[in-house]
Design a protein around this nucleic acid. Sequence first.
DNA 1: CATAGTTTGTCTCGTCACGAAACAAATAGA
DNA 2: TCTATTTGTTTCGTGACGAGACAAACTATG
Lengths: 407, 407
Amino acid sequence: MRRINPSRFQVATRGTSRDINSRIVLNLVRAHQPISRADLARSMGVSRAAVTLIVNDLLAQKRIFEGATGETERGRKPTFLYIDSRRRAVIAADIRASETFLILADLLGKPLTGVISFPTVRDPKQQVTKLAARIKRLMAEHPEIDGYEGIGVVVPGMVEHSTMRVLHAPTLGWRNVDLREPLAAATRLNVQIENSGRACALAQMWALRGDHATMAGDLVYISVSDGIGVGVIMNGEVLRGRHNIAGEFGHVPLSLDGPKCSCGSQGCWEAYISNRATLARYFGRPVNLAGPEDAANRPFTVEDLITRARASDAKAVAAIEATARYLGLGLASVINVLDPSRVYIGGEITLAWDLIEGTVRTALGERALTAAAAETEIRPVAATEHPRLVGAAALVAAPAFAAPVVA
Amino acid sequence: MRRINPSRFQVATRGTSRDINSRIVLNLVRAHQPISRADLARSMGVSRAAVTLIVNDLLAQKRIFEGATGETERGRKPTFLYIDSRRRAVIAADIRASETFLILADLLGKPLTGVISFPTVRDPKQQVTKLAARIKRLMAEHPEIDGYEGIGVVVPGMVEHSTMRVLHAPTLGWRNVDLREPLAAATRLNVQIENSGRACALAQMWALRGDHATMAGDLVYISVSDGIGVGVIMNGEVLRGRHNIAGEFGHVPLSLDGPKCSCGSQGCWEAYISNRATLARYFGRPVNLAGPEDAANRPFTVEDLITRARASDAKAVAAIEATARYLGLGLASVINVLDPSRVYIGGEITLAWDLIEGTVRTALGERALTAAAAETEIRPVAATEHPRLVGAAALVAAPAFAAPVVA
DNA sequence: CATAGTTTGTCTCGTCACGAAACAAATAGA
DNA sequence: TCTATTTGTTTCGTGACGAGACAAACTATG
């Protein structure tokens, strides 16, 4: 039951029915690919005639294509339909504090190239120039791609959705930066900017592997890294909030008088489970942001810590176990508040998921309000799945499949 | 951008455009009442011809009616249209631990009668019988009402939305109770059951006073009483979550090792700001649920405490101030996580709002992530507005104005 | 008082899109 | 070769919106 806003609504015109139904067809093709017109008509409950006309539209727009013919017991064989992602791609960029990553992906979010990267430049203008140059080079290296749907960019910070400006990205030192306009001007492509946590959540919602297709649209993506990034999908839509801060669980306190947090407050979840917190616990003292700790000039990271834990370093195990416990206690809050169908966890800590899962579950169980809530599915997302880049790709690829705005 | 669920979607048929547009007309009439056909056509951007046909439909359905003619500078005078709530009503019931309240309201949620009440019976079957009898008596007392849209019931507990069963209502001692079926059978009316916090939030979303009409669909309703009840609206829809527990901020910890909570855990927000917590702070010892404290056999309540605070009882002031501070600190979490346009606060504590607002704001400012978030509008809702009963009425009255489900 | 000008509300026609049903095409099996 | 069956297309009917003409109602004005 959604409210109609009497000052911002969308009336239905003659084409609205067609809009709605052709979006549904696109989604069904994407979900059940390959699928025939007759199958579409059956699963939609509309006449084959209507499907024929819609499919012809989509064929003319080159959004789908006719492939092989299928097999049937009796009668004429169906012609299968597929999403047309041949020779079309999106560009995905992930700007992080030290490096920027780039990839080409198809319209379904599948990577088409390996990940390339370059050191992030702190000056926004120079960074955009460099990014645009790398994107152009990447495009030139792939002449087999006819058209680009656009560029999706994720940043570790607060993004104003209406203008796509980066309002504040602490690790980059950016405030009120407009990446979109210069990047669009340089490449003449549609550019979409989003916070990385939200983009990751969006990508998981639009993902099609396994039973996702049938999943309700309620999920949370939590990325545990130097900070805690959270993306929330509720009722099939990204939660942004009035001031684009929705989902900031990282600064919900576990204990009001807990350890000092980078935000200036005390006892935030982030101050318990960020990589810095885990390392600080191991070393028994605060760890600064990019502090080299161990080998010659190479910083000691959570990955190293996990390696030591696997090698039965008792202090390392204890540090990770403590993080796991606080992760579970915080997850209880996330689940009690949002009650999602599934929670995804990203970040380096997922490398140790087999070690910590039990502890996380136990802690979650301690504070989850109901037994069912305590059983909420938790899925680690490995770095090798490139969740942020897939998220960036989804920013551009997903809108074509979204429900049309109506009423 | 909403995702289309490929296994649960709604195709557009021939009537879909009309459905959408007639809902929009209904909402515009409700928001701008009185309004003419020509005005509707202008603000919708559709032809007057289309509006005429839609309006004729709605007139035939008796959902709107033609009233007086308006004034214009020149030309033919418009005939004004109004929502037809004449001689039609909804029944709203609020079941609380000790008493059950009843009221008649019109289709816009405006109370038509005074509040009547009777002691709540703990046995669900007897309670339903009694409630049905009182409802029938109320209906008999109002023969001027031609038709009832239905019965809205709010309960202080977890309600499964799909079946409308009361899964767990601790203060009533109910588990897995079906109120709907027997009540519907006894009255032959449409019965809607909902958690009271959610219903209050729903009512605020659908309310039309002041600038609400133009408000974005993001708000939170927090009711501070024996427990903390929270209703959340995001993107114009009620948040329920996978297991119907979404919005349980009452059991998010302020401090992991804080005071013991009724849920069995420690340091929950509820354990800091519930009425029992405030009273316990005043008395310097735990207070049991319905414990008579002061006068002959009459329990000492938070209202009494507020009276004493107003009479400059230093201990009372301190107790309320502490509650205000924790209220603000918890609100910071609510706002950081959901970032709503507005937060409504209900419960007895609102009687002292003038005393505590400053403290609440200060505490909120301490932990809010941005200055804008700290400025989030907070509105106390007085008990005299009967938020739970208006919420119950909205359960039945609002669906007629909701956006049709499509795509 | 008649008339022009203006605004509201209705009517007609054209077009878009879905539903029903007939039809053409393709295929397996008797 | 014929029949049954299934897919995909075409035709016709109908619901709904857009454009524009028209009737109705009202004011101002000479």
